[in-house]
Amino acid sequence: MLIQPYLFFNGNCRQAFDFYRDALGAEYETLMRYRDSPEPPPPECAPPGWEDKVMHASLRIGSLRLMGSDDGSGQTARPQGFSLSLSVPDADAADRVFAALADGGSVIMPLGETFWSPRFGMLTDRFGVGWMIGVEA
């Protein structure tokens, strides 16, 4: 069994995934726009003008697959009640990734030493997604 995070955005999925690609050194596995669909999407999923919005995207971040899309239903709200937890190999990587993801976002807990990790911090990125960055003890 495998759990993979899938994030929904309100029209800015491409910007978010480009940001994650650059901040985390990720690679696109998939990027499909609504116009790429072999069948027209239902109007409740992709309103007029959403042809170039993301129907499905997938990034490879180390061994993780992060997926997402633009939700044209108008029901997308800021993510809450969870954070994506990212383990990095050392303090330098933690500093680099934390700074990149925090750019334009807000720091909840600055990076620092904790009893469970030599470096740990929490933030919300500019797209409203929560992240916990930690060095594996």
Rank of each mutant, 00 (worst) to 15 (best):
N12D: 15
D71W: 00
E51K: 05
Q75E: 10
P41F: 08
G62C: 07
W116N: 11
A100S: 13
E27V: 12
A99Y: 03
E113Q: 15
T114A: 14
Q75V: 01
R78W: 00
F17I: 06
R14K: 14
D125M: 06
P47F: 07
L64P: 00
D22T: 10
P40W: 07
Q15C: 01
P48G: 07
P38M: 08
M132P: 01
P5T: 03
S63A: 15
G121P: 04
I61W: 00
H56L: 04
V129G: 01
V54K: 00
G134R: 03
P40M: 13
P89C: 00
A94T: 05
A77I: 09
D22A: 11
A93G: 13
P38D: 03
A102F: 09
L31A: 03
M122T: 11
C13T: 05
M55S: 08
S37W: 02
G121R: 08
F127W: 04
A93E: 15
R126S: 10
Q75D: 09
D71N: 14
E27L: 02
P89W: 02
L64S: 15
R14I: 04
S69L: 06
I133R: 06
L84N: 01
A23F: 04
T30L: 14
F8H: 03
G72F: 08
A100Q: 08
E27A: 14
R126G: 09
T124I: 12
D90M: 09
G49N: 10
M55Y: 08
N10P: 13
Q75I: 04
M109G: 01
Y20T: 03
L2V: 15
D90I: 13
A94D: 10
S73L: 07
Y20M: 07
C13M: 07
S83T: 11
N12W: 05
A57K: 02
L2S: 15
D90H: 09
W116M: 11
S63L: 14
C13S: 06
W116P: 13
I108C: 04
L59N: 05
Y6S: 11
G62P: 09
V135M: 12
Y6L: 09
M32W: 12
F19T: 05
P48K: 13
V107C: 13
P118M: 06
W50H: 14
P38Q: 12
A137R: 14
D36E: 12
A46M: 07
F8I: 10
D18M: 00
E39G: 00
C13Q: 09
G72E: 13
G104C: 08
G72V: 11
A77K: 14
P89G: 00
M109P: 01
I3D: 05
T30N: 09
G134C: 06
A23W: 06
E39W: 06
P48M: 12
D90Y: 11
Q75K: 11
V88P: 01
S85K: 02
E44S: 11
D70G: 08
F17A: 05
E29Q: 14
